[in-house]
């Protein structure tokens, strides 16, 4: 792609990001809503861990750290997935999808803009909860070191992969499938070993769990918190699986987009 082509592509991506940022600029309740659930989760789990630390002494303190780390990092995956899928739903709710798909915006640019919004929404949602955990419960997520950034990236990528699948289902079934945007990742939580090691899972489930990128991130988090080491093997597995999941998500999304163009679903898709 020539420089002018890259510049034009960047401008189209920015155009869609600007559209979503404008929505938040004129609606503070929407911004508040982004941080509401992660903060509430942090408060509830913060009290649970404070209780555990009081009852169980040093072991409780360690367990509390693992729990709080799990809560915060799980929110990273969840908010990334929701940020992507809900930004796409905004286009359906406003019946704007037809205009977007008859503009020169390429599908890859649409996806890039949704990814950018996903990161923005995730940071606005999760960072206040991270600050709360540090200020009130003495848990510093970034005390694990720079590896936390890699945990974030791996979880965000998994959130995008799941969101691509969710968006494909919305293209297939219309706004009737919108509940998936809020619920689908919760179905992966038991397999993701967020609050317990994967070895706790029964055989059969364990093998399936190891195919989930988040499982390796949380194993890596426990290695960092409990043993003070970076589990490079788990990190590598998380990123490798992310690539596979993103590839599969992109293929499903593009397949459903083409199917929607064959059915004529894009022009009239709305609430």
């Amino acid at each position: 792609m020539k420089a002018s082509g890259i510049q034009a592509s960047g401008r189209r991506i920015w155009g869609l990001v600007y559209r979503h940022l404008s929505l938040y600029r004129r609606s503070w309740p929407r911004v508040l809503e982004l941080a509401y659930w992660p903060t509430l989760q942090m408060i509830v789990w913060g009290f649970v861990t404070a209780y555990l630390a009081g009852v169980q002494g040093n072991f409780g303190s360690v367990a509390a750290g693992v729990l709080l780390g799990g809560v915060l990092l799980w929110e990273v995956a969840l908010r990334s997935q929701m940020g992507f899928a809900i930004s796409f739903l905004e286009e359906i709710w406003s019946r704007n999808l037809g205009h977007l798909f008859v503009s020169p915006l390429r599908p890859a640019e649409l996806v890039a803009a949704l990814m950018a919004m996903s990161v923005a929404r995730m940071l606005v949602g999760v960072l206040p909860a991270v600050g709360l955990a540090w200020a009130f419960y003495g848990f510093g997520l970034f005390a694990m070191g720079p590896v936390v950034v890699l945990f974030f990236v791996a979880l965000v990528a998994m959130g995008w992969a799941v969101a691509l699948g969710v968006t494909a289902m919305i293209l297939r079934h219309g706004a009737g499938a919108e509940a998936l945007a809020w619920s689908v990742l919760f179905g992966l939580a038991p397999l993701s070993a967020v609050f317990y090691p994967v070895s706790i899972l029964p055989h059969g489930m364990r093998e399936i769990a190891l195919m989930v990128p988040a499982t390796h991130v949380f194993e890596g988090m426990r290695a960092a918190l409990l043993e003070g080491r970076i589990a490079w093997g788990h990190l590598g597995a998380a990123f490798g699986l992310d690539l596979v999941w993103l590839g599969a998500g992109a293929a499903i999304f593009m397949g459903q987009l083409r199917a929607a163009r064959q059915r004529g679903a894009l022009l009239g898709m709305g609430e």
Binding site: W14, G15, Y18, R19, S22, L23, S94, L105
Partner: peptide, 18 residues
């Protein structure tokens, strides 16, 4: 439709970029 919550100027700016 165009996004209802965006102002006319914002909507036109979006499509100016696209």
């Amino acid at each position: 439709s165009l996004p209802h919550r965006l102002s006319v100027r914002e909507n036109l700016t979006v499509y100016g970029h696209l």
